[in-house]
Design a protein around this nucleic acid. Structure first.
Lengths: 256, 256
DNA sequence: ATCGGGCTTCCGTCAGACGGAAGTCGACGC
DNA sequence: GCGTCGACTTCCGTCTGACGGAAGCCCGAT
């Protein structure tokens, strides 16, 4: 470790693109809405001629980045799943937090979330949902808006001003209760910072409220945890207490 | 979907290898024991000249397959994590099973495992461990031996004869209680098949016993779930009952 | 100041990528 | 059955972008 300068950011010659980039763009053809693709579809989504895609995909399959499902469609392979788990995308955080979250789930029996901020979104790192939990849109790996979720508000309240400005610029309405006025949101964020917790009332999904608190490491907010409930009533304080215990546990775990 | 023939398996010209393969081999340089690598290390592990690796890694970083950590080392990037989650590596199974497993955890407060057989190993797809749970070596994505774990024995008992033979050929000793005699193991597997559940007594890790049952989909064993406890005593039947309820739930969920 | 290890840039050579065209395969309709 | 169609796979002549040794750079250690 020494001469760490920087990888020359891609000049993007707008030409053909390197072979590597082309191969990667084929992987990029997969997303939440496209988990199974035919060769032709992949080629189209990656803007590559079919024979070229065919060659590259051959390599990807040989290595295990892709596999074919029973119908012959291509799907993301096991090897990428393995690699993904290796990613330090907050891996330390997930590993440390996991037992605490399960304990919390055991206590509350509510859907539990662990999220970090990824640019202008809340990135869900873990999610525990029992069977009887409130149905929710979240899932591990999902990116949800910062302004309409419990963990999102916490993360936003502790984000740099620049991020807040960007997010405020387009507050998408998701339900009748979504906060779409920048001023109101800003007021809430101030409260979140003061109170140390955030709440939402059906702002993301009807029938789902949430409470969330920050996870701090050496004082700095590194993540947020929250629970989702059908309604909050007067139970907020109790939940906040449980969440805070958990958050402190995780914070300590991160240092150890 | 039609002319599904087959991707010509790599003739492996033993030459330089395609660009794509080289890029992938750089990703392959990462594993559980090498999560953070310098450029030079990656190049060495992939048997590539440093300047070549540098160019390829540049692309991988630009695309998001790799990132640099604060110290300048390379680590698996967020985008691969995303992709990995997309992998159908039993994704349906994990998604369906998740709530059931959480319920089971809520009831037993023991470490809960969900695993499938991957060749001669048990591949752990999910793992719930509370804080007070028995410390265990397992983790999501891990591959553990079939002969020394609860879920492993279940999966092995329902595996094709060929797999059983292969596994029997080398029964690695892990603790003083690991079963290393093929005959004894085979007798146990017969019992597992008859009884419908498997148990282990500190065969993988000292201080950790386990009970496991198969998850069936339309009669066929597709996975196994199990719990880990400090000891089993006379509680086996109760745990088996809880596990079976869960397994049936998952099995039904898979069909729905 | 000097050294060494690792990262980055250069650039002349040429291996290997490229992709249009043609061949194959299976499904479907008549 | 036969023809059509869509999708996959193979071929192969062209030529581009990959290759990697050498040199330069940067930083920390001596």
């Amino acid at each position: 470790m020494s001469g760490v300068t920087h990888v020359s950011s891609p000049p993007e010659t707008t030409g053909r693109g390197t072979v590597t980039m082309r191969a990667l763009s084929l992987l990029g053809a997969f997303d939440e809405r496209h988990r199974r693709l035919t060769l032709t579809e992949m080629a189209a989504r990656a803007s590559l001629p079919v024979p070229t895609a065919h060659r590259l995909v051959g390599d990807l399959v040989a290595w295990g980045a892709l596999t074919r499902d029973p119908e012959g469609r291509y799907v993301v392979g096991r090897r990428l799943w393995d690699l993904g788990l290796l990613s330090p995308v907050q891996r330390g955080l997930r590993d440390v937090a996991s037992p605490y979250l399960h304990d919390l789930y055991g206590t509350t029996r509510a859907t539990v979330h662990l999220a970090v901020r990824d640019r202008g979104h809340a990135l869900y790192l873990d999610r525990l949902a029992g069977h009887s939990s409130v149905p929710a849109v979240s899932s591990v790996g999902a990116r949800l808006p910062l302004h309409a979720t419990g963990v999102g508000k916490v993360l936003l309240a502790h984000a740099p001003e620049q991020v807040r400005v960007e997010v405020m610029a387009s507050l998408q309405r998701l339900t009748a209760y979504t906060i779409t006025q920048p001023a109101r949101l800003r007021a809430q964020l101030d409260q979140v910072e003061r109170n140390g917790y955030a709440v939402t009332y059906e702002e993301m999904t009807l029938g789902a409220c949430s409470v969330a608190v920050p996870v701090r490491r050496r004082g700095e907010v590194v993540a947020a945890i929250g629970i989702v409930l059908p309604r909050l009533e007067a139970t907020i304080q109790r939940h906040v207490a449980a969440l805070e215990v958990t958050a402190r546990g995780i914070g300590r775990g991160l240092d150890g």
